[in-house]
Amino acid sequence: MMPDANGIALEARDLRKAFGGVHAVDGCSFAVPRGKICGLIGPNGSGKTTTFNLLTGLAQPDGGQVLHDGVDIAGLKPYRIFRRGITRTFQITRVFREMTVLENMLSVTGLAVPDRVARERAGELIALVNLTHLRGEYGGRLSYGQQKLLEFARALMTDPDVILLDEPAAGVNRTLLQQLLEQIHRLQETGKTILIVEHDMNVIMNHCERIFVMDYGVKIAEGPPSEIQGNERVIEAYFGRRQSGVVHAG
């Protein structure tokens, strides 16, 4: 059963985006229920990152709508979408390389608080991802996993409403990944909506309540993990034509 409209935080309606002849997102629709952790999966090149770009204004859709709290935000500038409380991390990290960890945190806008409060908040979030010892180090000097964690912490500076994570687990070691997942659950408990793109099926199957599966730019399946694991179209998308991923519960 679909949750009712009031319970939807972010919705894609018939989103389309082509790059030349490549239809990266080709009429994709899904609705992310408020206050839940959801997964967006699909083989490489199925359009997940492009969908994130369309949801956050980094790419302009060729067609379709993006509804946040029922308002169409498709095509708005990224900073406007961010200020509505939608934030994200990047698949290939985009930390500010010649700025310190602390400066990376403080660069975020939309925080109508005095400098001192912003610093306190930055300090707490840095501690949350175990980067306190590196707060004065340049972002570019961190390991890839640490950069992922810094991006995650940075995305939380403004206390956002919807959080989009593009492959947050890639390159993060097991211990830190466990902590990251705990943080994600804690965020959910405070009412945040979280959408995760991830190739690590353990993360997806064990932590998401609802999963959207994309292939060739469209949603081919949707449901709770138990349904997705047995879904034939999903298995075909992963095994049938490509060998790029494996769906199994961990």
Partner: peptide, 25 residues
């Protein structure tokens, strides 16, 4: 030494990421 200056640095480092973090570049 202000957050304004830090945001200018962010624009220098990665304008796309800066805009995605709410900066009206």
């Amino acid at each position: 030494h202000s957050r304004f200056g830090i945001r200018l640095n962010a624009i220098r480092e990665d304008e796309v990421a800066a805009e995605a973090l709410g900066i009206n570049v």
